[in-house]
């Protein structure tokens, strides 16, 4: 029996050849690992060679134009910044609240288990599907407020046509608080779409930050007579805040680089002005870059695209650096 196993296991008793094989494979495995670094380097060199010469004040100050040398991405830069900030505004409270519930409140139940599986699954849904969700729920609101829809006809609602058309009213009668239903192809619709897209990431990273707070801290707070919310507010949140913040900034970086959901949601290829309010149309840096890549002239599809990518990557790099800085600066070590 044991002889048979021995024979069939292809055991090679030539130690030299086995060690030679091990050395060769070690080199192959190292090569696999270094491929990532190699590709990253090639990519950066390719982009810098193509685009560095086109970095100029014009690129930052102007908008897209028929003349490559006068073309810039001003409205795209601002559109991206507004969009990402609004996204964080929507996503932060929601994500952190869900994370607090799952870490501090949730009982071991079927519902909790289901929520966990669901969040994992949401994190794997393709971003383009979120674009379709945003288009349907925020952008069009299932057509409920389209002209001649049953709802509009029944209540005789005064709907307007246009980019952000539909029903327009002042919330609580306050003059500045204008609401459009549906949200249309607006900045606010884009930001809401993005906030749903990054929500799973924010929840997962916030949970990790909250989980890192030692149980002894919680028990000490309870021991002093704190209620659960007092314990969370005065102990858990302050201590886990740097971790939560880092997670949010990294998620904002992801939102900044995403293109597809906003295209589906209805962001514009070309917007010659800055958004004046959250109901305005907008474009973002990745969309502007995509637009240039698809144009036939090499000035656009090589040089300006690469220059735009340099700007985008610099902003992303800045955000990552900020996240790392905050983590190191504020982190509590146990």
């Amino acid at each position: 029996m044991s002889e048979k196993v021995f024979a069939s296991s292809a055991f090679n008793d030539n130690l030299d050849s086995r060690q030679r094989k091990a050395r060769i494979w070690q080199t192959i495995l190292l090569a696999c690992t270094l491929l990532g670094i190699l590709v990253l380097t090639m990519m950066l060199v390719d982009i810098i060679v193509d685009g560095a010469g086109w970095l100029s004040p014009t690129l930052f100050n102007n908008n897209h134009s028929r003349f490559p040398e006068k073309t810039g991405m001003n409205s795209a830069i601002y559109g991206s910044i507004y969009n990402v900030l609004l996204t964080a505004l929507f996503c932060f409270p929601l994500g952190v609240a869900a994370a607090i519930y799952l870490e501090e409140y949730a009982p071991k139940s079927k519902l909790t288990n289901f929520i966990n599986i669901n969040i994992n699954n949401l994190a794997g849904v393709p971003s383009i599907v979120y674009g379709m969700l945003g288009l349907t729920v925020f952008g069009r609101m299932f057509g409920l407020f389209a002209p001649e829809s049953p709802l509009v006809n029944f209540f005789n609602l005064p709907v307007e046509a246009g980019n952000v058309g539909g029903l327009k009213f002042n919330l609580f009668g306050i003059p500045g608080l204008i609401i459009h239903l549906p949200f249309g192809r607006s900045l606010v619709a884009g930001a809401m779409t993005m906030s749903l897209l990054i929500l799973p990431t924010v929840i997962i990273s916030s949970r990790e930050a909250i989980r890192a707070v030692p149980t002894s801290i919680r028990e000490a707070a309870y021991g002093l007579g704190a209620t659960r919310w007092q314990m969370i507010r005065t102990q858990v949140l302050p201590v886990s805040f740097p971790g939560i913040l880092t997670g949010i900034i990294l998620a904002m970086g992801r939102a900044l680089g995403e293109t597809a959901p906003l295209i589906i949601m209805g962001a514009f290829m070309y917007v010659p002005f800055l958004p004046r309010n959250i109901w305005d149309k907008f474009t973002t840096m990745p969309i502007q870059i995509y637009n240039w890549i698809t144009l036939p002239q090499p000035e656009y599809n090589i040089h300006l695209a690469a220059a735009g990518i340099i700007v985008l990557l610099l902003v992303l790099l800045g955000m990552s650096a900020l996240a790392i800085f905050l983590r190191n600066k504020l982190q509590v070590k146990w």
Binding site: P93, L94, G95, A97, A98, I100, Y101, L102, E104, Y105, A106, L111, F114, I115, N118, I119, N121, L122, V125, V129, Y130, M132, L133, L135, T136, V137, F142, L196, L199, P200, I203, T227, R228, W229
Partner: peptide
């Protein structure tokens, strides 16, 4: 305390609504 716990729970349950929203939209 009860109200706060309810708000947090609502945020967590909202993630299920996102999935439902995706399916209903599509």
């Amino acid at each position: 305390e009860g109200l706060i716990a309810f708000i947090f729970k609502a945020a967590a349950v909202l993630t299920i609504l996102v999935t439902i929203g995706i399916i209903v939209s599509l």
